Amino acid sequence: MSNGGELRYVIGQNAYIKLILHALKHKTSSVNGVLLGRLSGDVVEITESVPLFHCSQIGLLPPLEIALIMIEEYYSSQGLSIVGYFHANERFDDLELGTVAKNIADHIYRYFPQTAVLLLDNKKLGALRNKKDTAPVMQLYTRDSSRSWNVANRITTKEPSANILLLDFTSSEKWNDIVDFDDHLDDISKDWLNSELFK
């Protein structure tokens, strides 16, 4: 099932919220992150996420490689591996999966053929306040046998209340607490695991 044809993707509440808060913290920049989890039957379970970059380093290989090595080392002991990639574009209305996103996703795909690529949909995010929607505010892309990334409508949040909690977090500006790898590389005392975020 290497092309992800029948697979479903389920993202846990904390992994989901962390990535969106990362994008909200850096509204005027592209941001990215990785998704961690495991393949369980025909479901890719995304249980954790790590915000990576928010500035010009977003497509640079050396910082990315350092981040991926540290992430894999830390999470492999918990039985998790990198199962996907998250991206939010700089422009509010940009819903294109760009070259940088595709290149990083291709890299992850080499190690995990069921890779999920999640692209933030700002319009869905903005509409959340007005309607009680449980659907994720991101678009899922999977890679097909022709090696191109295509939209797939097979992602759900594990907890139906994820968007309600997300609204609570945004109204209290919880995004100010998010630390990504850019922040950690500038000041190694900053916790890229964001272990205090949900406490």
Rank of each mutant, 00 (worst) to 15 (best):
I82D: 00
E45I: 01
S29P: 01
Y85E: 06
G98R: 15
I71C: 06
S40A: 14
E65N: 12
E48Y: 08
V34N: 02
E90W: 03
L52C: 07
L61T: 12
H87R: 15
L36V: 09
V44N: 02
T99D: 14
L39A: 11
S29E: 15
A88S: 15
Y75N: 07
H87Q: 13
I69Y: 10
S40M: 10
G33R: 04
A88C: 12
R91V: 01
E72V: 06
G41H: 08
L52S: 10
L60N: 14
G84F: 05
H87D: 05
S49W: 09
I104M: 06
L60Y: 10
H54S: 14
V34K: 05
G41Y: 01
E72R: 15
D94T: 08
E45D: 11
G84A: 04
S30A: 15
Q57N: 13
G33S: 10
P62Y: 01
C55M: 06
P62S: 08
G37H: 06
S81H: 11
L97S: 09
V31I: 12
D94L: 05
V31Y: 03
G41Q: 06
F86C: 01
N103S: 11
L95N: 15
S29Q: 15
V50R: 08
A101E: 02
S30Q: 13
E45G: 01
I104C: 04
P63A: 09
L68C: 00
L52G: 12
D42N: 14
L52R: 02
G59K: 00
Y85K: 04
V31M: 03
E48G: 00
G41S: 11
H87T: 10
E96N: 14
T28M: 09
I58K: 06
N89E: 13
H87S: 11
N89M: 00
L36M: 12
V100I: 15
G79L: 00
F53A: 02
T28Y: 12
E48H: 12
D93H: 13
S81W: 00
G41V: 01
P62C: 00
L95P: 03
K102V: 04
L68K: 07
H54Q: 04
L52I: 05
P51W: 05
F53E: 04
V83Y: 00
Y74S: 04
E73V: 02
V50M: 07
G37M: 08
A88W: 00
I66T: 14
G41L: 05
N32P: 11
G98V: 10
A101R: 05
I66M: 07
D42I: 00
E45W: 03
G79P: 10
